[in-house]
Simulated assay, not measured.
Amino acid sequence: MNFLKHLKTGVLVAALILLSNATYAQITYDLTHDQAFKALLAAKEKAEADNVLVNIAVVDAGANLKAFIRMDESYLGSIDVAIKKAKTARYFNVDTGKLGEWTQPGGIIYNIELTNNGLVSFPGGLPIKNKDGKIIGAIGVSGGTIEQDREIATVGAKAIIE
């Protein structure tokens, strides 16, 4: 009987601790579907203006796919690359091109692209920030040159705050 009393008390204490910590939960700034489409369409317009066929992926703050487009006749292999560029940018909150500088042989995080079911460490993935500078998601573009992919991603990422 004494054991049950202690067990009930322990469960009650645990529940109170969990409830009291709820007010200290991490705040997540997340991208809305309207913002995801705004970034996606701005990037698509840039790609069309530059006559580049790309795949464009937008992920939310949790690196979950929120919006995607495969432009007609773009490379099939670029679908996965665009998604992984967006996820990589969000996982590390950095331009994937900058991450690539750190992953070269002798770099501070050499071979990190082999983690997380594959990362992409070349340009074309960027974090997306809101007007307050908080990261709310990321965009990944693949199919053009790495310079074109970065330019297109930049236009999409900036569309949120314009």
Rank of each mutant, 00 (worst) to 15 (best):
140 G>H: 12
132 D>K: 11
121 S>C: 11
104 Q>K: 15
133 G>W: 11
141 V>N: 04
95 D>F: 00
106 G>V: 12
119 L>V: 03
52 V>N: 01
62 G>P: 06
40 L>I: 15
3 F>K: 11
103 T>Q: 05
30 D>W: 14
108 I>M: 10
99 L>T: 11
162 E>V: 14
117 N>K: 12
159 A>T: 11
135 I>A: 15
151 E>Y: 07
63 A>M: 04
101 E>P: 09
71 M>A: 02
96 T>E: 05
139 I>K: 13
93 N>T: 08
44 K>P: 02
9 T>A: 10
106 G>H: 15
152 I>L: 07
49 A>P: 06
132 D>E: 15
72 D>G: 01
151 E>M: 15
114 L>E: 09
19 L>K: 01
15 A>H: 02
98 K>F: 00
26 Q>W: 10
8 K>H: 05
110 Y>D: 08
145 T>S: 10
16 L>F: 01
14 A>W: 15
153 A>E: 14
8 K>N: 03
44 K>S: 01
141 V>G: 05
124 G>Q: 06
116 N>R: 15
25 A>H: 09
55 N>Q: 07
98 K>R: 14
119 L>H: 02
30 D>P: 05
74 S>R: 07
1 M>V: 06
149 D>W: 00
40 L>S: 05
85 K>N: 07
90 R>I: 08
44 K>I: 00
67 A>F: 06
73 E>V: 14
74 S>M: 01
99 L>D: 05
50 D>T: 04
33 H>T: 08
154 T>V: 10
158 K>E: 14
42 A>N: 10
95 D>S: 03
104 Q>E: 10
143 G>T: 12
66 K>T: 13
4 L>G: 01
143 G>N: 13
67 A>Q: 07
26 Q>P: 02
162 E>W: 09
6 H>L: 12
34 D>N: 11
127 P>A: 12
114 L>C: 03
146 I>M: 14
53 L>H: 00
120 V>W: 03
137 G>A: 08
10 G>F: 00
68 F>K: 03
65 L>Q: 05
101 E>M: 13
13 V>M: 04
52 V>P: 00
90 R>S: 14
122 F>G: 07
97 G>N: 08
160 I>Y: 04
61 A>K: 14
148 Q>E: 13
157 A>F: 09
156 G>R: 07
56 I>Y: 02
37 F>W: 12
122 F>I: 15
148 Q>C: 03
60 D>F: 05
139 I>Y: 13
8 K>R: 10
113 E>M: 06
22 A>S: 11
84 K>N: 14
134 K>A: 10
100 G>W: 08
83 I>L: 05
86 A>K: 05
149 D>A: 04
11 V>Q: 01
6 H>R: 10
142 S>P: 02
20 S>Y: 03
22 A>I: 01
115 T>D: 10
8 K>D: 01
94 V>G: 03
122 F>W: 13
36 A>H: 13
86 A>H: 05
98 K>H: 02
105 P>D: 08
11 V>W: 00
39 A>Y: 01
121 S>T: 12
144 G>H: 06
107 G>N: 12
82 A>Y: 01
86 A>D: 03
133 G>C: 06
25 A>L: 12
95 D>Q: 04
67 A>Y: 11
1 M>K: 13
47 A>H: 00
54 V>D: 02
102 W>P: 03
153 A>K: 04
103 T>M: 09
142 S>F: 10
125 G>Q: 09
